[in-house]
């Protein structure tokens, strides 16, 4: 209990309280510009979301975005971690190189990708080299979300890889040695030693990615501004617009708590399925 107290106290005050305040705001109409302050309206904001086509569309976009990024960001990262966990020449440099995207500031990264995706950018140049037609990656509603997802996978790989690396290091080497002595081949060692050993970290990685991806905002803000045809307007982007462009913190907060509920349910399901010790 005592070990948890400082963290619980801090999070209670500086994280939970603002969230509860937001929950209260979701039951009000509130514009920080107005002098009146919040006015209670009960569940009107939530009821309004039932018929809000833009909100529904944003939830679909968000789910699609998470579904596109998550499998790749986790599977590729695991693969890279398995490789980077081996000892080979220059391993430190490889690890640093693979981790690099995680630490390059998102705004700067997005600018590079804006250039890579631009009509005269590197991707179109590569397409031209292999004899394909150039594309307007970010301006076409058929490809914009995939393009943003591509950048996000790249950005997420390094962080996930480091987590898997830490997880791999925590698996006692004796387990592998024993498995080898029992005659297990490489696949069997991976299947019966590595994967179960990584289970707690994998749970964390999946939930962490769901939490982050479902709140994607900055890369969309910079790369597409939610367009074209709102095909990249995620729920968090819509929340930002509602709060800071339309100054309606009540509805923005209600949207945020619906999004929160979705993230929580998905995360809880993952925690239930994967979190249990075997």
């Amino acid at each position: 209990m005592l070990f948890v107290a400082p963290a619980a106290g801090y999070i209670g005050i500086f994280h939970l309280f603002p969230v509860l305040y937001g929950l209260y705001l979701s039951l009000t109409t509130y514009s920080p510009l107005d002098r009146g302050g919040p006015e209670l309206v009960g569940f009107d904001n939530y009821a309004g979301l039932l018929n809000d086509a833009d909100f529904h569309a944003s939830v679909r976009v968000t789910v699609q975005f998470v579904a596109e990024v998550l499998p790749f960001a986790v599977a590729f990262a695991l693969g890279l971690a398995l490789l980077a966990n081996r000892s080979t020449r220059g391993i430190g440099l490889f690890r640093a190189g693979l981790f690099l995207p995680r630490i390059v500031p998102l705004a700067a990264v997005s600018l590079v990708w804006l250039w890579l995706y631009s009509p005269d950018g590197w991707f179109n140049h590569v397409l031209g080299q292999v004899g394909l037609e150039p594309r307007t990656w970010l301006l076409d509603e058929g490809s914009a979300l995939h393009a943003v997802a591509g950048m996000r996978i790249w950005k997420a790989l390094g962080g996930n890889m480091v987590l898997f690396l830490a997880g791999l290091q925590a698996i006692p080497r004796a387990l592998y040695e024993a498995a080898t002595m029992d005659g297990a081949n490489a696949w069997q060692r991976f299947r019966y030693v590595t994967l179960p050993g990584l289970r707690p970290v994998t749970t964390y990685v999946v939930i962490l990615n769901i939490v982050y991806l479902a709140q994607s905002f900055a890369e969309i803000f910079i790369l597409t501004g939610g367009g074209p045809l709102r095909s990249t307007t995620t729920t968090n982007f819509l929340i930002y617009e509602e709060a800071f462009q339309n100054n309606r913190f009540g509805t923005a907060s209600a949207m945020a708590f619906v999004l929160f509920a979705l993230i929580f349910v998905f995360s809880f399901m993952v925690l239930r399925r994967m979190g249990r010790n075997p």
Binding site: S118, D120, T136, L139, G225, P228
Partner: peptide, 19 residues
């Protein structure tokens, strides 16, 4: 062409008029 492009976010030298 370039429906939806925001030229304000590109260097002036990249404006289609300049290229």
């Amino acid at each position: 062409d370039l429906l939806g492009a925001d030229f304000a976010n590109q260097p002036a030298a990249q404006n289609p008029l300049a290229t």
